[in-house]
Amino acid sequence: MSYGAFSGNPKTMWLSDRGDDRDMQVIEDFWYLDQDGRRWDVPAGTVINGASIPRTLWSSVGSPYTGNYRRAALVHDAAVGREGVLRAESDAMFYFACLAGGCSQLQAKMLYAGVRLGAWASNTHLLSIEAASAVPDATRLPGEQTPRELEIRARYTLIANQLKVTGNDFAEVEQVVDRNLGRAH
């Protein structure tokens, strides 16, 4: 089964003078053509940061720019927030782009759960929990997690365990994730 194709390997440049040193700028147009023929463009000049999956899940899912999902992450970053593109559309594209990039079905499901959790966390009460319980990094013990991080990890673990026994039909995967994030399907 074809999951689409990428235009090749992306050409990027690290922007080491910005933020937490995770930003990159795309220096040559890049795109992903999905299985339905929709082209997801990443124009030269686009700045990406791989921040769609919460940092607390990196040890479980993988950190940005690693593994077979690097190109999918780049296209997803460019699509999120683009006018006329719904976040759910971008996340679904990411799932299939992960498969096109060489991820296994299980890995694509876990990565999809990670980006959906990222969207959920940025749109829920967890932001107020984080602010109310903010502990400066300097006073946190190594490995200590905030209430927000603990909630994200707990939900991810629940979803991941269900996805391990879920079939590979995307509608079924989407339903499991949405049900656990409180979205009706």
Results as ranks from 00 to 15, higher is better:
13 M>G: 09
112 Y>A: 03
150 L>C: 12
3 Y>I: 12
156 Y>N: 15
156 Y>G: 15
151 E>T: 04
21 D>M: 14
181 L>E: 04
127 L>K: 13
109 K>S: 01
76 H>M: 07
161 N>M: 03
143 G>M: 08
25 Q>E: 13
142 P>E: 00
117 L>M: 14
19 G>L: 14
175 Q>F: 05
170 F>E: 10
31 W>Y: 15
143 G>C: 06
111 L>F: 10
26 V>P: 12
184 A>E: 15
115 V>L: 06
117 L>W: 14
163 L>P: 12
166 T>L: 11
135 V>T: 13
3 Y>G: 09
95 Y>S: 10
54 P>K: 05
93 M>H: 06
20 D>G: 11
140 R>S: 01
44 A>I: 09
159 I>N: 03
72 A>H: 07
180 N>L: 11
122 S>V: 07
67 G>W: 00
18 R>I: 14
112 Y>S: 10
172 E>R: 08
87 R>I: 13
171 A>P: 15
17 D>I: 05
99 L>Y: 05
69 Y>S: 07
59 S>F: 13
147 P>E: 00
93 M>N: 07
116 R>Y: 03
119 A>H: 15
91 D>H: 04
144 E>S: 14
127 L>Q: 08
96 F>W: 05
89 E>N: 10
50 G>R: 06
120 W>L: 13
131 A>H: 12
63 S>G: 14
54 P>Q: 12
26 V>I: 14
107 Q>D: 03
86 L>H: 10
166 T>S: 11
3 Y>V: 12
65 Y>E: 02
171 A>Q: 15
75 V>H: 01
140 R>W: 07
46 T>R: 11
11 K>Y: 04
47 V>Q: 13
17 D>G: 15
29 D>H: 05
136 P>C: 05
45 G>P: 10
121 A>T: 02
52 S>V: 00
38 R>A: 11
30 F>H: 12
27 I>F: 08
160 A>I: 02
105 Q>F: 01
70 R>Y: 07
142 P>Q: 00
158 L>I: 01
8 G>C: 10
95 Y>P: 05
180 N>Q: 12
112 Y>W: 04
76 H>Y: 09
51 A>V: 03
104 S>T: 13
91 D>T: 09
154 A>T: 04
176 V>Q: 03
27 I>Y: 14
12 T>P: 11
31 W>T: 09
172 E>H: 10
75 V>D: 01
105 Q>C: 02
140 R>L: 09
183 R>H: 11
66 T>Q: 01
20 D>H: 06
34 D>A: 04
108 A>G: 08
83 E>F: 02
73 A>R: 05
137 D>C: 06
47 V>S: 12
